Simulated assay, not measured.
Amino acid sequence: GGGYKPKFTKLKTLLEDEFQSDVEITGEGTPSRTGWFEVQVNGKLVHSKKQGGDGFPDSSQKLEVVVKAIKKALGE
């Protein structure tokens, strides 16, 4: 429960704490949808709930996919 915003805020904080300024995380809750969530690394989109149909990383498996995409974009 609690809607989309608390989930977004928690995940944004988690990823920004791990990757600092290397990632840009944007999202928004909308009345007609559950919101959107995007992760960019150096201007490159690596995850998009809105455009790519990647969904919101609401499980540890989905989160790991996002983390791997970030690390790959960073060359780690």
Rank of each mutant, 00 (worst) to 15 (best):
S60I: 13
Y4G: 06
L11M: 10
Y4K: 06
V41P: 02
P57T: 11
E38C: 01
F19C: 05
V41H: 03
G53R: 10
A69G: 13
L63M: 14
K71D: 14
W36D: 11
E64Q: 15
N42K: 15
K62D: 15
K49C: 07
K72Y: 11
V23R: 00
G75F: 04
S32K: 10
E24K: 09
T9S: 10
K5F: 01
G43M: 09
V46P: 00
D58Y: 00
K62Q: 13
L45H: 01
T34Y: 05
F37M: 01
Q20V: 12
G75M: 04
Q40V: 05
V66P: 04
N42P: 00
T26P: 06
G1W: 05
T30A: 05
T9K: 15
K7Q: 14
F8C: 06
P57S: 13
G43D: 00
Q61F: 02
G75Q: 12
R33I: 04
V39L: 02
K12I: 01
L45P: 06
D17V: 02
E38I: 00
I70G: 08
A69M: 09
L14V: 02
K50S: 12
I25K: 02
K62H: 10
E28Y: 02
K72D: 14
V66T: 10
L11R: 10
G43C: 05
N42M: 07
D58C: 05
G1F: 05
E18H: 07
G3T: 02
T9P: 03
W36N: 10
K62V: 01
K5Y: 04
K44G: 02
V39C: 00
P31V: 06
G2D: 05
V41Q: 06
S21A: 14
V46Y: 03
V65R: 11
Q20D: 14
D17C: 05
L63H: 05
P6H: 02
F19D: 09
T30V: 04
I70N: 08
V67L: 03
G43V: 07
K12R: 12
D22V: 02
D58F: 02
S32V: 08
K50R: 15
E18F: 03
T30Q: 03
G52S: 12
D22Q: 14
Q51E: 15
K68F: 03
V23F: 01
P31N: 10
Q51W: 08
S48N: 00
K62T: 14
S59M: 14
L74Q: 11
K5M: 07
G52F: 04
T34R: 04
Q51L: 13
G35Y: 09
A69W: 00
Q61K: 11
A69H: 07
K49T: 07
V41A: 04
G52T: 01
S48L: 03
G2N: 12
T26C: 05
G29E: 08
E18P: 01
Q40D: 07
G29L: 06
L74F: 04
F19K: 08
L11G: 00
F37E: 00
L15E: 07
E16N: 06
E16W: 02
T9C: 00
S21H: 13
E28Q: 13
G52W: 10
L63F: 04
K71A: 07
T30Y: 01
K44H: 09
R33L: 02
P57A: 15
S59V: 13
K62G: 14
G43L: 02
G3S: 11
E16A: 11
R33C: 10
V23S: 07
V65G: 01
G27S: 04
P6C: 09
Q51T: 06
L63G: 11
V39Q: 01
